[in-house]
């Protein structure tokens, strides 16, 4: 912890960073939540523990860019993928961010329950980046933890085994629950459009009603917009008050990007994006 605070304070004192987007304890001391430290004193409140599930990269496109200094951010390995993806998509440049990478030992799915194999989000079960691959300074230690079987993978296999009618019925029953609160969009680091297509009214492309038709349009279009772009942090699913298994869709898209184009978003800041590049060797067999 001290290491994290020292790194943040050093970046703020040297004015390398204008602020640090990190985590602070809630007053009850049991959970954490996003916190923006602007002074070394404020930075003393920064913490990192098993309840730091949030992907803070979402704030990089929500907060006004400082006139001087970089945007400092505390990032887990999985979160750095979002930062790299934002660099690839020209939303930020590498020298606009100061990344305090935290070695991570997993986060909880439910912050009110103790950390453990039965309380892990899918992203931690599948995790291969306990040590952030990109950072300006690296703090903490990454302890190994027990990983159970991933329920999302199992569910995805069930879904893949369905025929298209069954699969349609499955998604119809899931999307019916949607209340159009847009928590999925608001928590998504890759959903940064200044005006989301669902908010456009002249003309209105997507019905704003939380009816089955409106819900289908919204959730499918969001999935398409994230095809080859989702970095798998699972924030949309964590935020969904109706427990719609959005990662089943997003992860499938990621798998297709990998199988068809050998592409994984948010890994190499120099690499052109999947939808922003064309290669003569690309697999074209789905054009029919």
């Amino acid at each position: 912890m001290q290491e994290l605070i020292q790194a943040a304070q050093a970046a703020l004192t040297s004015k390398e960073a204008a602020f640090i987007i990190g985590y602070a304890l809630t007053p009850d001391g049991k959970k954490t939540r996003p916190f923006i430290a602007r002074t070394p004193d404020e930075a003393a409140k920064l913490v990192f523990n098993h309840t730091c599930a949030h992907n803070l990269a979402v704030y990089l496109t929500r907060i006004a860019k400082p006139k001087e200094g970089k945007m400092g951010i505390v990032a887990k390995g999985c979160d750095t993928r979002a930062i790299v993806a934002l660099i690839q998509e020209n939303k930020i440049t590498r020298d606009q961010v100061y990344i305090i990478g935290v070695n991570c030992s997993g986060v909880t799915a439910d912050v009110t329950l103790p950390f453990g194999a039965d309380n892990l989000p899918s992203k931690c079960i599948m995790c291969q980046v306990q040590v952030p691959p990109v950072s300006d300074v690296l703090v903490g230690t990454a302890a190994p933890y027990d990983k159970p079987k991933d329920a999302v993978t199992e569910r995805m296999q069930l879904l893949e085994a369905m025929n298209e009618h069954e699969r349609f019925a499955f998604w119809a029953s899931e999307f019916e629950k949607c209340i159009k609160c847009y928590a999925c969009r608001q928590t998504c680091p890759m959903c940064y459009c200044e005006q989301c297509i669902v908010d456009k009214t002249v003309p209105r492309w997507i019905e704003s009603s939380a009816s089955l038709r409106g819900n289908f349009s919204w959730n499918m279009i969001r999935a398409f917009h994230l095809a080859g772009r989702c970095i798998g942090c699972g924030e949309c699913e964590r935020a969904c008050p109706m427990d719609i298994p959005l990662m089943l869709l997003n992860r499938k898209m990621g798998m297709v990007a990998m199988q068809q184009f050998n592409y994984r978003h948010g890994v190499n800041p120099e690499e052109p994006t999947l939808v922003g590049s064309y290669n003569m060797q690309d697999n074209n067999e789905f054009f029919k």
Binding site: R33, F35, Y59, R62, K180, C181, Y182, A183, Q186, A239
Partner: peptide
């Protein structure tokens, strides 16, 4: 400032 502006 940390509210992300959803309607949950």
């Amino acid at each position: 400032e940390t509210c992300l502006g959803c309607a949950q």
